[in-house]
């Protein structure tokens, strides 16, 4: 390395290549006269960065990340809560619907029962009225029928008397009545 450097310098001098200030050649990295200086500033920089990080930056970033995580967790929990609430509301709505339906069924059944009772009462009343009417009619018919039989008897007796008279006989009222009654029975 050393010979190369001298050679390079020699060539550079020979052809007039511009010299660099400081005049150091080869690898400045291996110029140990600066090491103390570089290490001093490195130590200073590392201490400064360590203090910046450990005192301010890292706790702050950790806090921000934790806060964000907390916010996200809270938001998710809140969303879950709201979902649960919505589910509960839906369940309550469904329950109310079922209840209302049951209530409506109950009301319908009650109304039906009322109507049936009214109807039954009305039918029963009508039946008794009909029964009374038919009994009355029956009575009237039997009266009429009895009346008719009497009339037939009377007509038959009269007719018999007339026929007997017309045939020149004299009708015995007792015999006529007995004969007519016998016929009417037969």
């Amino acid at each position: 390395m050393a010979t190369e450097t001298t050679q390079g310098d020699g060539l550079a001098d020979a052809i007039g290549v511009a010299e660099h200030s400081g005049g150091s050649t080869g690898m400045p990295q291996l110029d140990f006269t600066h090491w103390g200086n570089q290490m001093f500033w490195l130590a200073l920089a590392l201490i400064a960065i360590y203090l910046i990080l450990s005192r301010v930056a890292l706790p702050r970033i950790a806090a921000v990340l934790a806060e964000r995580q907390g916010t996200i967790t809270n938001d998710i929990a809140a969303a879950e809560d709201l979902t649960n609430k919505a589910d509960a509301a839906e369940a309550a709505y469904d329950q109310a619907l079922v209840d209302a339906r049951a209530e409506a069924q109950r009301i319908i059944a009650a109304a039906k029962a009322d109507m049936q009772a009214d109807l039954d009462a009305a039918i029963a009343k009508a039946d008794t009225q009909i029964a009374a009417k038919s009994a009355e009619s029956e009575k009237a018919i039997s009266e009429i029928r009895a009346g008719a039989v009497e009339s037939v008897k009377a007509v038959a007796k009269d007719t018999v008397k007339e026929i007997v008279a017309a045939m020149g006989g004299k009708a015995d009222a007792k015999t006529v009545t007995a004969a007519v009654t016998a016929r009417m029975k037969g």
Partner: peptide, 14 residues
């Protein structure tokens, strides 16, 4: 260049 001299190295480290 002393150990505390402010060099270009020190500048860019800063």
């Amino acid at each position: 260049v002393n150990w505390f001299t402010f060099t270009n190295a020190a500048l860019w480290t800063s």
